[in-house]
Design a protein around this nucleic acid. Structure first.
Lengths: 203, 203
DNA sequence: GTCTATAAAGAGATAGAC
DNA sequence: GTCTATCTCTTTATAGAC
């Protein structure tokens, strides 16, 4: 499923049916939740009949799962790429937070779905997603552990601090609105500072 | 609606019907969301027939609204009481965060409902709840503003920092589990430190 | 205040034509 | 691959007996 226009030579004005369904579902799930969204909501928003959804997806739940899986894997790539750009823990943590937060602000629609609709997944799908989310924790905790080991960071509980730093970014998906008081870049820059202070780095 | 046992002389083993409905609804809304919960789920969990719900509540939405309103007003009282215990901004912010976070961990069921089911409210009810939530922001921002004015805090954006500090506590409702790695007191104490660091207070 | 029974609408998913 | 039509079950809410 493509959620953005493909980078094909010809300009794509109308995404294909599968993509339109994915976009429509993402927006509906984000604003009304999985159980507050009907398959008719999705198919109508995608410009199709209710039956068309089942040509492209086995069920409403499987559509949510696909969106959630793609979203999680994309975010994991964002934070891994941020960490890979440096060897300095403070730089790594700062970049990670800045990119994670900016992403949650820019892509707040998708971020709401991946963070707040987990309970609607089947047990098997839920478990598969939790494995990816566990990687988020591991990446952040690892950066903090190395900062502490290097004497750059100081925290009484690296694990809880990692969780709190991720919390900051996740909650951005809950409150961020397009056209609000701050741009994604402004939030990202401020949260970078906050996260570094949380691990005891004075600027 | 009473959500805890009343302080009457005689021991109350079975709460009254209205209270049982409220408790059942709170737990169901917290775990499956408003739209994922049926009125049968609620009435059955409360030990009643589906029709009994409508003797005590006009609709499912009004039941959610009452739970949300009571929950918000209780939390507002928690943070106002914390601020009232001192005149020192650092002490006030520390107490506020500690009490807010502990409350969100202990009462995570109710906290999930008040923080994540707002979209299910009617427009009028939603607006009424947002007014209470605005007070949360005002209280925290005011403490930070006074800390900055007194030279105790340093932050490039008091408003965003206030939002981020509330975010930390709110997200506790999302991830906290009973019997998990930390007690509510442990989370609260650690988050107090994190919040003070966020405003530039070195311990 | 609680029940049984049910009305009325909405929901997920499928059949079969084109 | 999309449609119309519809099946079947679920859901909110109410009527009326006790």
């Amino acid at each position: 499923m493509r959620l953005v226009s493909a980078s094909t030579p010809e300009p794509v004005l109308e995404p294909d049916a599968r993509t339109r369904l994915g976009q429509a579902a993402l927006e509906a799930f984000a604003s009304r939740g999985f159980h507050g969204t009907t398959t008719r909501d999705i198919s109508t928003a995608a410009g199709m009949s209710p039956a068309a959804l089942y040509v492209h997806h086995r069920s409403k739940e499987e559509l949510l799962f696909e969106l959630s899986r793609l979203g999680h894997e994309r975010v994991l790539e964002v934070i891994r790429a941020a960490v890979a750009r440096s060897d300095d823990p403070a730089q790594q943590l700062g970049d990670l937070v800045e990119d994670f937060v900016r992403d949650h602000a820019v892509a707040h629609t998708g971020a709401r779905v991946i963070n707040y609709e987990l309970a609607a997944l089947s047990e098997e799908h839920h478990a598969e997603i939790l494995a990816v989310r566990h990687e988020f924790d591991v990446v952040v905790r690892d950066v903090i552990d190395r900062g502490v080991a290097a004497g750059a960071f100081a925290t009484p509980d690296a694990r809880m601090t990692a969780l709190a730093i991720l919390s900051l970014g996740i909650d951005v998906a809950r409150w961020y609105r397009d056209g609000g008081r701050w741009t994604p870049d402004e939030v990202a820059a401020h949260y970078r500072l906050l996260a570094l202070r949380m691990v005891g780095v004075a600027e």
